[in-house]
Write a protein that binds this DNA or RNA. Structure first.
Lengths: 338, 338
DNA sequence: CAACGTTGTTCCAACGTTGTAAATGGGGCT
DNA sequence: AGCCCCATTTACAACGTTGGAACAACGTTG
């Protein structure tokens, strides 16, 4: 295939190691040889064989990003930033989809040992902190998302409780009194739901409002629509709903509109994630916008730290910022250009 | 780090090669040794070092998927299928985002030479067929999408002209007579637009209808909304619009609704891509659904063929199927559950 | 002028794997 | 017993790279 160091060395009339030194910017090379070698390098179009380099150095230059599903917009957007952040360290990113299944998550965690990747940024759904802690493997691992706090590995997330409380406070500030939380899950499934539920409760309790909840299995549009439909059919339907993510909220919006009611006049809706769809739905969706670039950057930086300073340091928790995006689904539809 | 063949060989009391033979399922190994070796393998938790294996075999087991942006839903959904299809060959997929920029696309094409990946599935926007043909590198390459037909490499896409004609025919069958095409682009930018425009023209010409077009720079919601707004302001606005992709259509939908008009009563809308958002918008979006799993599978299969049978074969064109998804944005809003 | 340090370059080994060729050993044949 | 054949196992080399030791050439110093 391509030219190797040996080919270049032959052409330049020097040793292989000298070529290697030039390639790696080693300082003590005479200008004359350097010139000769560089000429040979370009003439042959030399590209280092990364498999060989990796074998020698024990690094692959590839990290894995494991997440439930790439076509959930939140994860697609997050992936984009992770890839960009990793590129700054000249890392490639392979993406592994777990579908949130325990089996696949274990596989991913296990597969890391194949020396194919130097580290893993992992957004788990099903796997537990105990199982992570029991991991024999010492590959660098950074957790991303809400599933596990204070676990056995570095962790990046936004402050979910506070974010949930803030957005609920917003609904309250609109004068709504029957505010539901949509997206409650069995504790054992995911850590996201309890945190967002806690924030919601803090807010409504502070104002002495009643609690309404609707459960879902997964954070998908169809589930949001179904749960919303159940809420609407109840004897006293809510006048505002905080959906635990934007997909649920968009599904809920569809259900409200399909039932002939108006958003936000009859039911105000808010989500969390700030996916692009919500900026173009009708009405546009009020939501919490986690700083995805910051989340991705922090995750990559933590991984970098782990890989450089050999392990041993205690796990680190980092919080990324977020902003409230107040849009039409709570404050009203304003016809006109976007 | 992990145990190597040598460690296992020592523990089992055999040669390194014998262990390698067991690992690779070589037939002529006595049951007794095989047992011994397998015991040692599990005891040490042996994992092959893939860098070494790759170095030896000249393969990395990683392919690259280069596309404009991961957070465009169509590409996110497509990526999901590519990753799944690649997993069947035990390949990992690294994703490279080009943003459609010529600079990044050249980089990607160039970076393939780094021996980091065995092959590339490439969805180009800016790069030309001539430049691809001039590529010195002989790494396996499969083109995915509409940009380049009959180019210098294997290519997978749906029949864009026919798909565009079919969906336009659908609009005509509704009795609409002022049908616009939204998404026309300068030829030099992308091959998608001319193909879809051609299909649109075939259909309206066959029925003697007038042609309306609206241009955009990129296939994004905001552009769709802006272009739709322009159409609505024209002296004789359309009563139906075929948008060249779903994002444009969703942006257009937003613009129509924001202007106080109804979809589909005043303006029927159709897209192309069948992204998930369109299945939950209000109204839901009529569109062309390319068989993304088939597209991904074909691309991966072609790559496999290239990698196995050493090159030389002439480039191959493959067409994936598609279906029309007739939804509310053309046939009317039907309140009720989804 | 010998001993020395500095700079530039080369030699050797090793990373972990696998293809090739060669060695080993047991069994059946003459 | 001597021989060959075959299944099984091993030794060796090589993939392309880089760290470290070794070495050569040089000018500097005592």
């Amino acid at each position: 295939m391509g030219a190797s160091l040996r080919d270049v060395a032959e052409l330049a009339g020097v040793s292989v190691k000298t070529v290697s030194n030039v390639v790696n910017g080693y300082t003590h090379v005479s200008p004359a040889t350097r010139l000769k070698v560089e000429d040979a390098l370009t003439r042959l179009g030399y590209r280092p064989n990364l498999s060989a380099r990796n074998l020698r150095q024990g690094r692959t230059g590839v990290i894995a990003l494991a997440l439930p599903e790439l076509d959930a917009p939140y994860f697609a957007e997050l992936s984009r930033f992770v890839i960009q952040a990793a590129a700054e360290h000249r890392w490639l990113v392979v993406i592994e989809q777990t579908d949130g299944s325990l089996r696949r998550e274990r596989q991913v965690l296990d597969g890391v040992r194949d020396h194919r990747v130097d580290g893993l940024i992992f957004s788990p759904i099903s796997i537990g902190a105990d199982e992570l802690a029991a991991r024999t493997d010492d590959t660098a691992l950074v957790l991303l998302g809400e599933r596990i706090y204070d676990g056995p590995a570095d962790h990046v997330a936004i402050d979910n409780v506070r974010a949930a409380r803030d957005i609920t406070e917003h609904l309250i500030s609109l004068g709504r009194t029957r505010i539901a939380a949509l997206g409650v899950q069995d504790q054992s499934v995911s850590g996201t739901s309890p945190l967002r539920l806690a924030g919601y409760r803090e807010a409504i309790a502070a104002h002495g409002l009643p609690e309404f909840t609707a459960e879902v299995e997964r954070y998908q549009r169809a589930e949001g629509a179904a749960a919303m439909t159940r809420l609407l059919r109840s004897p006293s339907p809510p006048d505002a709903v905080f959906c635990f993510n934007d997909l649920l909220a968009l599904g809920a919006m569809r259900a409200v509109l399909a039932s002939g009611l108006r958003v936000p006049e009859d039911v105000a809706l808010a989500g969390l994630d700030d996916i692009e769809d919500g900026r173009y739905s009708t009405p546009t969706l009020t939501t919490v916008a986690p700083d995805k670039a910051q989340l991705a950057g922090m995750a990559v930086d933590l991984l970098k730290l782990r890989l450089d300073g050999r392990s041993g340091r205690p796990p680190k928790e980092m919080r990324a910022g977020y902003r409230l995006m107040i849009r039409e689904s709570t404050t009203g539809f304003r016809p006109g250009p976007l």
